[in-house]
Each structure stands twice: as C-alpha cells, then as structure tokens.
Design a protein around this nucleic acid. Sequence first.
DNA 1: CATGGTCGGGAC
DNA 2: GTCCCGAC
Length: 810
Amino acid sequence: METTRENRVVVLIDMDCFYCQVEEKLNPELKGKPIAVVQYNPWKGGGIIAVNYVARAMGVTRHMRGDEAKDKCPEIQLPSVPCHRGKADITKYRDAGKEVARVLQRFTPLLERASIDEAYLDITAAVQHRLKSINTSAISVEVMPNTFALGYETLAEFISDVSRFGGDCMEFDCEHAMSLLVGAWIVSEIREAVYRETGYQCSAGIAHNKILAKLVCGMNKPNKQTVLPKHSINLLYKSLPIKKVKHLGGKFGDHVCQVLSVKLMGELQTFTERELQSRLDEKNGTWLYNIARGVDLEPVQARFNPKSIGCCKQLRGKSALTDLMSLKKWLRDLGDEIEDRLEKDALENNRNPKQMVVSFSLQLSEGRDSSSSRSYNFAPDDELCGEIFAAKALELLLDSAEGCRPKDEETNRRLKAPITFLGISVGKFEDNENKKTKKIKDFFSAGPSTAKTDIREKSNHGSKCDNIIKDAKSENISEDAKCDNVIKSFVVKNAPVDVCKDAGKDYVMRKFFQATDKENNSSKQRRVVETSLDKQESFFAKFLKNDSTKSTEIKLDKSYNTKGGNQEVYIKTDNNLESGLTVPRGIPDNDSNETNSNYSTSTINAEINKSIALFDEDPDEINRVTDMRKLLNSSSIVDAEATESNYSHNQQVANEIETIQCTECGKTISMHMLNTHADYHLALKLRDEERQHMRQEREEQRKEKFSEHVEAKVSRQEKGESNKSIASFFVKLDDSVPSESCKQCGKRVPLYDLSEHLDFHEAQKLNRELNRSVLQANNSVTNSVKRKRKSTSPVKKVKVPCKSIDSFFR
DNA sequence: CATGGTCGGGAC
DNA sequence: GTCCCGAC
C-alpha cells in the first residue's frame, strides 16, 4: 500500500492525570484515594493543576482551589508541587515525562513530544511492517483490550467490518481502516510497555493525522484508547463543537464561529474553500477546509528534546516588583534555575544554548499590562550560569533605560511601573563540538583508545570501580587499553542480551555469564539468569554488542518522507523480532548526523542518567545473600557458544541464585536487578567524571576564546550590535585595573574598555531613535487586517504605545 | 492579588 | 527580533 500524508497512522499518547500518577507512584499510599496536585500557593489551599479519577468522580476539577476541593471531597489528599526559589518546581514531573517518552521512542523514531505528558507518534512504518508479516484474520479483541472504535458499539463490530469487506469494499475505506486497526493493536502494546516499565497509565487516540488523534484521545479515558476510522469522521463532526478542535479552542475559533455563524464542525462542510478563504484568509481558509474534511497534513516531527528551556514567574497584585533589588533577586533566582536545568540538559544532550530571552510585563495602570521581551546572543566567553543570565537579563531590561545610571543607583530604587511578570528562557541550541567532551564515548569506542582518561587517575579514593579495576591491573596491557578493557569486560560480563519469542510475546532474555577465576580459566562454569523485563536491558551491553560484535543485524527500512520530502527516517529493526517494532536505542534524532552504528554521547549520557534514576526507583529486595565481588572479580571472557544455552537450564540456574550483596553500597540486590545495579554504579561514576570534565572544558573554552572575543566585540559594535558589549551591571571592577568614570553614565569603566564603552552610548542613542520611529510606524497601522487573531479578537484590546522601558524608572 | 509555569509557533 | 496566541 502506498503511504501518503492522508493515510498515515498517527497516535497521540496522553498520560492520564499525569502529575497525580507521579505522586501516586512516589507515595503508593495515595493509590485509590482521591487526590489533586496543587501548586503551592498559600492562598486558599493552592491552585489545582491535576485531579485523579477518584477525585473527579466526586466533582473536583482543575481550576479549583485546594479549599474548594476539600469542600467537595473532605477526604481528598492534596500533594503539592515542590517549591524552589519561590517557584513551583516541576522537575520530578519532567523527569517522569522523559522516562515515559523514552519507552515510546523505542517504537518509532517519529516521536514528537507535545508537552510534558503528551506525545505524537507516527507508526505508519511499523503498521506496514506488521501488515506484511501477519495474517490479518488473527486480529481480535483480545490483543487490544480497552480499545474503542468511534462509530461502533463494540470493537468487535469494527473488526468484523474490516475483515468482512476484505480488500475491496465500497462501504468504507477498508484498507485504511485495517491500518488503523493494526495501529491500535500496536498502540496497545506500546501502552502496555509504558505501564510495565514505568507504572504509568495513559490513553491514546489512533487516527490518520494529529488533529484527529488528539480529538479522539480524550473520548475514552482513563487507560483506554480510541480509533477513529475515516468513515466515522462525519458522525463525529455532526455534533462536535468547533472549539473542541486543536487550534480552534481560542480566539481564532471564536472568530470562525462568528464570521461563519456556525457552531459545529459538521457545518463547515457547506463552505467552499474559496468562501472560507475570503471570510478568513488564504492560509486559514484552506486549513479549515481540510480540517472540516478530516484532513490534516501536519507531519509528526521527530523531536524528543525541547527547543527552549525557560522559566518565568507571575508577580501579580501585591507581589509585583517595584524596586531594583527585588528585580535583581528574582532575575537571579530565575537564572539559577535555568543554570540547573541547562546543566542537566548539557549532560544528556551535549548541547548548549546560543541565545537568551528575557520577558517581562509592566503594569501601566489598573488591569492594563504591557509585555515585552529582549533577546541576547551569548558571547563565546559567557559562562552559562545563573549569575550571567541574571546580569544579562538586567542589562536587557535596563538597556533602553534612560536615566538609569549606576551613579543614581540606590539599593532600593523604585521602579516607575511594577513588574508583573518576569521570565528568562534560553534556546537556539547547538550541538557541542566533538573534541574532548566526548570522553565517555571514547571509553566505549571500538577502536584504540585515544583518550588519556584513565578512570583510576581521576577517581577518588574509595572509588566505586575499585573492584572492577583490580582485574585490569593484572593484565599486561597499556593503561588506556586497560581502562577500556575494564569497562568493556565489566559490561560484556554483565551483558549479553538475547531476544527470543515466547508465547507470542517478545521476551528479552538476559544471560549472565560467570566464569571461574582466571587461573582456572579452562573450566568455565556458566551461569545464566534471565528475565522478561525490558527495563533491565543493559544499555552498556547493547552498546558494545551493537558497536563491536555486530551480532544484531541491522536492517534499514525504506525511507519514509516527512516534511519537505528531504528528511529520511531510518527504522532500525532487529531481525529477531517478527513485529519489527522494537527499535534498539541509539536512534539518531532528527538533527543528529550519527549513523546507526554509533551511539551519540547524548544517548550515552541519557542512559547514564536513566540507569541511575532507574535503580533509585527500585525498592530493595532482600532475600538470599551472595557476594557481588565474587561476580565482579570473575573472568570477563565470554564464551560465544554460551548464547545457545537453553531455557530450562537458564531457569534452573536462575533459581539457584536469587540475591547478592553489592560490595559497593552493601545493598542486597536480587539477581534480576544485578545488571541494572551494576550499571547504576558505573553510571554514577561516569556521570561524575563527565560533570567534572565539562566544567574544565567550559573553563578552558572561555580562556581560549577570550582574546579572540575582545577583538570580535569591537567589530560587532561597528556593525551596530551594540548591546552585546555593555559591561554588566553586576561586574565588579578590579581595583588593580586602571579605570575611569564614564562621562555619560558615571560608571567605572576599565581604561582598555573605555572607547568601546563610549561607542556603546553612541550605538544606544541610534538604537533608541530607530526604535521610536519603528514604534510610531507600528502605531499607525495598529491591528492591521492581516493579524487575524488580533483584529478579530472579541476582546477589545487597546494597543499600548510602547514607551521605552527607561521611562518607567525613576 | 488569584490557573501558573512552560512550551511551540505564526505573523510581521 | 518581538509580540502574543494556543495548549497542557
């Protein structure tokens, strides 16, 4: 079957009351009880941002206050979002969302994270693959529980329709209904994997495009999935309010309803494309015409990581900022949060932001705010830390501030207008240079090690890897090779992962080989432990297996076009799997040039974090005690033919050893957690190494580029990019540096920077004049016709003349 | 005082 | 580059 934009199989996965589920997982006592997560706010018990289904049944909803919820449901529990630096801190939910997304990502590289708890998946390729490999008559209700087909009383009726009409039928588009049905089958497996591996439940919508998938996802909740066959679209639209459709939920939707005098989606089909274009505009007219017919060509973007990282704070009412000190304090807090999140991001994704934006709102008068934002492109020597973010943000805020001079600065200077909103965000990420930062990757590279990074040199006393390292020391090889070998042997020893089919289900079999001591090398005794938990696959093992032994055959599916027709997406398939669904990790994301045979540093880092997080989540299991050292000190040689060991033998050995004690942390580990646990210690080690290394790296880069930057700075100014070079308000002048007061602003400026500083004032003047004329021009065409959303807004919005910010400071 | 904090994206 | 909409 030919695949086109119109008959893709697109899925929206939506986590059910996600924040509540996260809280329930963290505190199992909450399970089954009515709960609502509140954002800490001392006023009336905080604002509710998530409600579980027990509480919903009792009438608790979002948008309510904690106190109201207590009224409706006295026994409700109200876990609250933790508070850091005076702000809600949603880190744990973000991490949980990532954990889920990583599971989803295994099933298709075409994954678009839409929010913290939602993701679109394009599983067209997987559906095609399965259609080829199975007998469609085998599809039954049993393989996809909790599945609904829109337009049918029962799923069985839908299945029966699809199979009864065979390949050619006029009643409905049978071929595409079949693809959705198979899609639903796969999605039920995806949801099952999510539940099994994370403990979270979700709902899903399965349709031919994003809009429809989103639409039906919410029709059966929680823990259910809904298919929307093409021929049921009109039925759905017949009673569907226009405002329920994505992009039509706001002012634009109001406008559509108003100018067309309609309320329901079905009514839109009476308009021709021309008519819609003339009443809206060309683009929106065509878009609406298509949507009205269930056609939405938006591709699912392959995007896992956010494009920007930001944080902001509403400072309404009394908490509005009125003095410079509190402004600085808030900027610093926001900056520090960005720093924290950036550090995590850099570790996982090996990238850094090139731009920063500060946004703010000023209260002009009662109920009238004006919002603005200013952006700044980082200089090469800017340290990506909270202090710099705050300093730059303040600069941007004050840059157009006439009369705001350091000499006037008092500790408590009041702002002329209260700041009611403050936000900092960073974006325009670029991948880091390969260079030395790929240290960890060097560890794992198959070729000769180039990195002079013996894990022993940097490791502190009491290293977590001591017992691993002992092995290497006895070997007669170079230090580097030893180091590589240490890790490889460690990994391989813990590693081999096989896939076998069992009762129609894919089980990941893990085999653990234990040979005797080297002295006794000849009499290898094999021990095998297996488990069906995907969760315990060792990434490190897979890495080595894929990267060096190549025992997993890689097959490239036919490329599949997305936006622009340029982007080729490769589906990496393990041939052992009939379904062709399980995609090994390490799939390059859309903006990476990595090949299939390589894992990016990002991936490795992500796995390190995951490994740590994963173990942290697992409760200790205490049974029989064995000595982990015995296992870790054992030989690393893996017998290739060992992989042929049969199931019953494995089972037998598995039963022999149930738990061991980790010599690192003393915890008792059940055997099936051994690999995970070993990875955990290795990951901890590697993460520390990498963190330390990155700090050094950043420091070096700043030093290297500094002189270069000073020159570049001047030339940038000549080009009019003046704002970049202004000295920070927070910069403390070194007394030893000869400096002079600027006659214009009174600020102390180092002599070597003085001419540059004066240039700045000139450029600033020009900038201001330019801004004024632009603003005047803008005001003359207020609410231009082309700005649909604005001009058509039912809310009359007075365009506030944009005064320069400085006029709001005294 | 009172959905708040994040995201992505379109328009100009 | 700024502004602001839409959505969770």
